[in-house]
């Protein structure tokens, strides 16, 4: 890649830092140059986020229809899966999976709810708010 070909597109990195790229300069040797982003990368990134948002929407519907507990919604919202969530709350995977069931979730103690809420960065009483 030549130094003048390096793309300078705007994207989410703009407010954090320009990134360093290795390019050929006019003498034909390697040099570094800073780039603010590349739109091809941004498209891949926003596609990944669209997929996350789809999953969150599905999770919201499932919770509203009473198929899953709010824990499931918050898990999807934090891009976690059961194994990541279980290691954050330090609860066995099987128990976490059970807590995704509305009937089990209803009987959860305040202490357990507090542990989940802490991982999801919300207040315990906000667990039921799906946003």
């Amino acid at each position: 890649m030549k130094k003048e070909d390096i793309p300078q597109d705007s994207g989410p990195l703009e407010y954090m830092t320009p990134e360093l790229c290795y390019v050929k300069n006019s003498n034909g040797s390697y040099d570094t140059v800073k780039s603010t982003g590349w739109k091809v990368k941004n498209e891949a990134l926003s596609d990944a986020w669209e997929r996350v948002h789809d999953r969150v929407e599905n999770a919201r519907n499932a919770v509203e229809m009473g198929l899953k507990s709010p824990i499931y919604f918050h898990m999807e919202k934090n891009i976690m899966n059961i194994s990541i969530l279980s290691s954050y709350v330090k609860i066995n995977r099987l128990r976490v999976w059970l807590h995704m069931r509305p009937s089990v979730y209803k009987k959860l103690s305040a202490r357990l709810l507090f542990r989940y809420a802490k991982v999801f960065n919300v207040k315990p009483e906000e667990l039921n708010i799906l946003k």
């Binding site: 790229c21 290795y22 390697y30 891949a44 990134l45």
Partner: peptide
Amino acid sequence: LGQIIRMQEEIGTGGGGFRFI
């Protein structure tokens, strides 16, 4: 394919899946 692009080009690879480095 989007995932491949991110593994290959995302910040921290210097572009082209480390080939330029």
